[in-house]
Nucleic acid binder design. Structure first.
Lengths: 222, 222
DNA sequence: ATCAAGCTACTGAACAGTGATTTATTAATT
DNA sequence: AATTAATAAATCACTGTTCAGTAGCTTGAT
């Protein structure tokens, strides 16, 4: 359907060379740009790469976005939206133990974020943070800080209920997040190289659960 | 010609505009390149940035290196050398408990690697892995895999002696490494942004020790 | 020790390729 | 036929690389 039309547009249909799609273009361009950025990095992807990946030519992206940087910003702003709210809700609605909740959250996170294209964006943000300070701040304030706060609340709940011992909250939150981040980063940096895999890239979800278990075992009151 | 540029070129001697230093140049250029790459990323760093940071002009780096990419490779190859051997030796010579050894190793690692310019290179490698697959493989084989093996040995020793319970080795190693990596990465990506700090960037060494304690608590036989 | 003469590390202007952005033109849609 | 989405050629700024010239160093004859 869509793919076919793109093909015929660029490849072998001599009549209809292209199609007008004012509504769909912006999203198509952003999708294409995300995958290109993730694949090659910001600087190494040319506007033409983005355009071709979106099935248009060099000039078209400029009809919808001011320039390359604005495309990057639009991607960043558009991607960090609703996932966190989902996790927030998950945490609020859950009425089992804090441990069980954490397991749920990790599984959910992996499925919705860790696995998804937005994981590539996270790696990209980390790589490009120094070059886009405003975006880095945005990323930090919109995603990292709230994630930390959410985890803090869950941990505090576990401590209050006596399920966990009174560990230093701030450091423990970071310790819980670390495996998630490294899994995401590694799978995007070395995941493609044949043979270059460590435990966490072979079986990401399994690793995440094991890592969580390990920390939880250390958190338990005994 | 500009007086300032002459001054900056030679620091403070208005007569001798430059000096011949065949022996020292390569190292100076590599040092300069490392700091520029770490600061701006590979693509965003111009050869002239490197040259100026090394106190020479655009042409000079080409007297010692074929091109920009070779400079990057030279840095990568030159940086991942002896630290791991030091840690290896530390582990072999140590005769206390596995927990105490791990604490020693973390402290040593932070001082010699986490804190140092080579930490910036690690972040850089992660960011550029997709663009330099050969280098990424080199980095993986020379640094990541051996680090994993070293930690495996230490863990296994702890398990054999009955100090630790029999956890899944591969995943546990990755779980131990995760806080080190995130600390390094975060401090380089968000460390400069005022106000953007999480627990691990505020007090890195403290965080590393706490994170290790947490996992060790989970590892202990009780 | 001095100084001329040669050597070469280094400079900096010029070159060439690249890639972001603009714009005149074309053709799909209404 | 009018409108305008999209193209494709042109522009323009930038940057990696080269190279002819310059100046700091070395050597050896005096």
């Amino acid at each position: 359907m869509n793919i076919d039309s793109v093909k015929s547009m660029t490849e072998n249909c001599p009549i209809a060379r292209w199609r007008r799609k004012k509504e769909a273009r912006p999203a198509e361009i952003l999708d294409a740009a995300l995958s290109q950025f993730v694949e090659k990095g910001y600087r190494a992807t040319k506007m033409e790469d983005i355009a071709r990946a979106a099935g248009v030519t060099k000039g078209t992206p400029y009809l919808y976005f001011q320039n390359k940087e604005e495309i990057f910003k639009a991607i960043a702003r558009g991607t960090f939206v609703a996932n966190l709210q989902q996790l927030d809700k998950l945490a609020d609605d859950f009425d089992g133990s804090a441990s069980a909740l954490l397991h749920h959250m990790v599984a959910h996170w992996w499925q919705e974020v860790g696995c998804s294209p937005s994981a590539g964006l996270c790696k990209l943000m980390i790589a490009e943070a120094a070059n886009f300070p405003e975006l880095a701040r945005f990323y930090f304030e919109e995603l990292i800080a709230p994630s930390n706060q959410l985890l803090s609340r869950v941990l505090q709940r576990g401590i209050d209920s006596g399920e966990f011992r009174a560990v230093p909250l701030v450091h423990t939150v970071d310790a819980l997040l670390a495996p998630l981040l490294t899994t995401m980063i590694f799978s995007h940096s070395f995941g493609q190289l044949p043979g270059c895999c460590i435990g966490s890239t072979k079986d990401p979800l399994g690793f995440l659960q094991d890592a969580l278990d390990l920390v939880l075992h250390g958190l338990k009151n005994n």
